[in-house]
Design a protein around this nucleic acid. Structure first.
Lengths: 178, 178
DNA sequence: ATGAAACATTAACCCAAGTTAACAGAAATG
DNA sequence: CATTTCTGTTAACTTGGGTTAATGTTTCAT
């Protein structure tokens, strides 16, 4: 069983407009969301009000707060739509319960989790080993479409610098090219 | 079935001395390792020779290169023993193959992967939202034992600063306390 | 169309951390 | 025991990026 099929058969469609929140940091939130179309951002807001973007989520992705779902804690981040979005929501428990009964589904979930873990590992690597400039160049190379869809302000918050910092990095990179 | 049981029944014991490598960055490496005792570090070396520590691994942990095992790529990091270590090695394929047959094992793997994903997510959060000083304080709070077992040089490489930088951070933190 | 809001760039100034190097204490090795 | 090696601290200097603020551009709403 393909995971998107499971979402479509067991989940509930959710339509959201641009700038609508799917859930808020601090809320109890035990759903997973499959993205049929649209673009979203998942972000943290720290105590002093600084926003940091965890990830951009797009067509075909699955997103949810693992820690909230698993340990019944509150969501550690917020999820908001950057464009109109077609989502499918599925209670986390339903997926876990079905996985206990259906071995094929369980292996599909294993696959999803491994892909997810690899993605997180890659991002850990980027923060640990690369400079902000290197992270920008890598993103530009791997996701050129994203650079066009996303405001520089948000791109900066994803890369771990300020908008001013990113502007300087772009200028520096330009200078080297010419 | 508990995962450590599966390792003990299907895996092969591996004994390593201090400073011995379990595997090297760049090698094909398709095993998972369960740590019965000892302390290890997993680290990247960048092109320009800089070492960055991905994680410390200790008693009860499971470690392996997901990307190497899953996509048959080479290990993206090295694994070395900081103390004598008792490990149990298990070919990644064996675990996957058994998970396809045994639904309980599959759900145990799901659990392991979710714990792993949450750990990586926490680390992502720390790099994205916290300063080096805040990361140091958090580590000190959550893993005080580690601060004693691990050389400051390695601690620094884990926190994403230089040894000199960490020394300054410690001094600054001390100053605030008094 | 026009004013307001949002977005991007640039400059000035500051600070945390990198780099290099000197130094001192601890630990391993002959 | 002596001495080399490892480990941690400190100082001097440099640099990348944060902060604030001014200026221009684009986008949006009325």
């Amino acid at each position: 069983m393909d995971l998107s099929e499971f979402f479509l058969s067991h989940g509930k469609p959710v339509l959201k407009n641009k700038n609508n929140y799917v859930f808020n940091q601090g809320e109890a939130e035990q759903h997973l969301y499959f993205v049929k179309s649209g673009l979203l951002k998942a972000f943290y807001v720290t105590e002093d009000g600084k926003e940091s973007i965890k990830s951009f989520i797009t067509h075909g992705d699955v997103i949810g707060s693992l820690s909230a779902a698993l340990d019944k804690q509150n969501a550690s981040f917020s999820l908001v739509c950057l464009t109109e979005c077609e989502l499918v929501s599925l209670p986390f428990d339903v997926l876990i319960a079905e996985s206990r009964k259906d071995i094929n589904l369980a292996n599909t979930v294993i696959n999803l989790l491994m892909q997810f873990a690899m993605k997180k590992e890659r991002r850990e690597y980027e923060f640990l080993c690369l400079s902000a400039e290197q992270r920008y160049l890598l993103l530009k190379q791997n996701s050129p479409h994203l650079l066009e869809q996303v405001k520089q302000h948000d791109l900066a918050k994803y890369l771990g610098v300020t908008a001013v910092g990113l502007s300087r990095i772009k200028k520096r990179v330009q200078a080297i090219k010419c």
